[in-house]
Design a protein around this nucleic acid. Sequence first.
DNA 1: CACTTGACCTGTCCGC
DNA 2: TGCGGACAGGTCAAGT
Length: 273
Amino acid sequence: MPELPEVETIRKGLQSLLVDRQIVSIDVRLPRIFSGDAEAVRGASIVNATRRGKLLIIKTSSSYSLLVHLKMTGQLIYVTQGKTTTLPDKSTKVIFHLDSGDRLFFNDYRTFGFIQVYPTDQLEAHPFLKKVGIEPFSPQFTKSYLLELMIKAKNMNIKAFLLDQTRVAGIGNIYADEILFAAKILPSRLVSSLAADEQAALFTSIKDILSKGIELRGSSKTSYVDLLGQKGTFLSEACVYQRNGLHCKICGGVIQKSKLVGRGTHFCLNCQH
DNA sequence: CACTTGACCTGTCCGC
DNA sequence: TGCGGACAGGTCAAGT
């Protein structure tokens, strides 16, 4: 479940470790998840790594970029020449061979993720990038902007609102539950029912929880690891996600779990209203 | 048109 | 022990 904090952690890793590295060749082991022409970036070097929502954008020195979406179980792991590794394994779907014998592995056992070779000058026309919503850490994301979004979505429940990538980008199931706990709002509440102080708490909590996720280098429930294969530690700090049946860290009550918008949803009935 | 649900996948866990 | 089914959730397409 790579969400914004996980994808951002990987982006930072790419930016610090892979800029100026050359792509010597690309070994595509599952063509279904790779689109575009691998030849278009062969011999190119990596210029920078950016992110929109949960999508990674790796710009190369050719006129093409690599778009990487990890969906649920995707991993990008960088292994330098000579370093001991168990990779590739059966989850490895693409291997980028870099100069000096280093390799970048794209692993994904559920194969929902994808890599696209896409013309850099046409990125704004990309189907995902065309409709993805605002970045929660952009200066344009203000409380009043969030309120405008909420006015347009008044009949949705607040969890569905947070998960909708076309409104605020990057929030997935884990951080949605944690944001709503921090804001003391039950996930099933209608957007239109939030009082002013709850709207303010939601705005603050979106930034606070995502920031904490980035600080702790993401959440590793099952498969998420960073570019060097290290797990993130956010889940040990989580208050509700996957804590159903356990005691609430704030009030001592029992954390509940239900299904909302098709997703496992965790909350505390004492702390959230 | 706005929103909801199902499909896409496979590894893991649970109950029989 | 083995097996069937539920579950995990990001996004798109199809349905209401």
